[in-house]
């Protein structure tokens, strides 16, 4: 079983990203589970969402304490949240940032990777909404999921032009991350 924690701010679509990841993983013939960190969400406040992916049906209901992967939507969170907390040594931490991974001195043995998801989103989608872009980056960095499954899930949730542009941005982030592995 792989466990993923997504950090973001209220309004950035962290919960949606966790859900889309679960939908995409199931389409990849895995079992999946997505849930929010049941807080009282406010726009701009730090939030978390979680996804589990497994070959077998998932029964575990506790929160995620030792994730295999962490996705950070907003690098300003690093000042207020221990985003690397509990991350496994052989895990991967993906940060949305214009800077390279060496910029981030975090207390973790896990591999840190960065992707300028905001730029990709602005260039392709036209809005700084990075949640779907980061799912593409996740697919490229981890190989846990087919990018096509993520694009299908996004197009189903956001039909029409929005879904198409998001899919394009997902593919772009996927390719960039795959190339840097």
């Amino acid at each position: 079983m792989k466990e993923i924690r997504i950090h973001g701010r209220g309004g950035q679509g962290s919960v949606t990203a966790a859900e889309l990841l679960a939908v995409a993983a199931f389409a990849d013939n895995k079992f999946s589970q997505a849930f929010p960190a049941f807080g009282v969400e406010r726009r701009g406040a730090p939030v978390q969402a979680f996804t589990r992916i497994s070959d077998a049906p998932i029964r575990l209901r506790s929160q995620i304490y030792k994730p295999d992967y962490v996705i950070v939507q907003d690098s300003t969170l690093l000042e207020v949240v221990d985003v690397a907390g509990g991350l496994k040594d052989d895990g991967i931490l993906i940060i949305n940032s214009e800077f390279g991974p060496e910029t981030f001195k975090l207390d973790t043995k896990a591999r840190i990777m960065t992707v300028n998801a905001t730029k990709i989103a602005l260039d392709i989608i036209g809005r700084p909404i990075v949640n779907t872009v980061l799912l593409g980056a996740f697919a490229g960095a981890t190989g846990e999921i087919r990018p096509g499954s993520i694009m299908d899930a996004v197009r189903e949730r956001f039909p029409g032009k929005v879904g198409e542009r998001n899919s394009e941005a997902i593919m772009e982030a996927y390719k960039m991350m795959e190339a840097s592995i």
């Binding site: 999946s32 589970q33 849930f35 049941f38 998932i58 209901r61």
Partner: peptide, 12 residues
């Protein structure tokens, strides 16, 4: 059903 744990979970 358990609040949030089941009401807000996505699963197959």
């Amino acid at each position: 059903m358990d609040g949030f744990i089941l009401s807000h979970v996505y699963e197959p």
